[in-house]
Amino acid sequence: MAKWGMVIDLDKCTGCQACTTACAMENNTLPGESWQDVLYYHEGSYPSAQMKWLPRPCMQCENPSCVHVCPTRATYKDMDAGGIVFVDWNKCIGCKYCMIACPYGVRFYADEKPLLEPDLRDIFPGQKGQLWSPPYQNPEEDWTRGIGVQPKGVVSKCTFCHHKVSKAPPGTPDLDEDNPALKEYVPACVRTCAPKARYFGDLDNPDSNVNRLIGDKHGVRLKDSSGNKPQVYYLGAGAGVPAFQPKPRS
């Protein structure tokens, strides 16, 4: 089985948020429930101030702290599904310990105050156990893997678009949106990336393009000191996250 990994080239990323939008459309997430987001940071001050941005999906860690802390095994890493970390919505009790333990802040409890008004949950009230039921939904649904529109009281997260990548022919080293035979299997955020800053492939396949990019272009993992060992690598300048600084006090 493949070990799916993502490579994000920050020298190509324009911060356009197309990936964020594609993810929200693909997975029917609510505003603020950004399984994929582009985070903006600024660092330093004039004359060397920097503006940074960082696309951030779930890192699908090799050693995921969210999995270790979950008291019910609702959060689990499936090595038979490319090492993707899933949430089984039938087992999640909504204790939110995984959200505490994730160093990357990529888990969401959408049963919260709406980010934007009007509340989409009021406009499209939930049916058949769903937290909300938008009129156009991805027909793919698998609550044991946290795919679809979630019910109330559970945690949700990026699934690396498992419902797409799981249908790729076995042994495929890379899922490249430019290959017409493979484009339907490519995660939404990768497929929509206009500057082609994202790559998706098999980290266990020595011939994969993602491995070549990581080796040749010095791919790094975010917060590697956490020991979580993400399966998402970053290329190019600006892959570090600045230390937190509070708003200046007047």
Binding site: H68, V69, C70, P71, T72, R73, A74, K91, C92, I93, G94, C95, K96, Y97, Y109, D111, K152, G153, V154
Partner: peptide, 26 residues
């Protein structure tokens, strides 16, 4: 406070996630 309190009564004992401190809290 929990999202699914009654579910907790069966998923914790049946899944035995002994790595979790919250399992041991129970």
């Amino acid at each position: 406070e929990l999202g699914h309190v009654f579910r907790m009564l069966w998923v914790i004992p049946f899944n035995m996630q002994i790595q979790s401190a919250m399992f041991w809290m129970g």
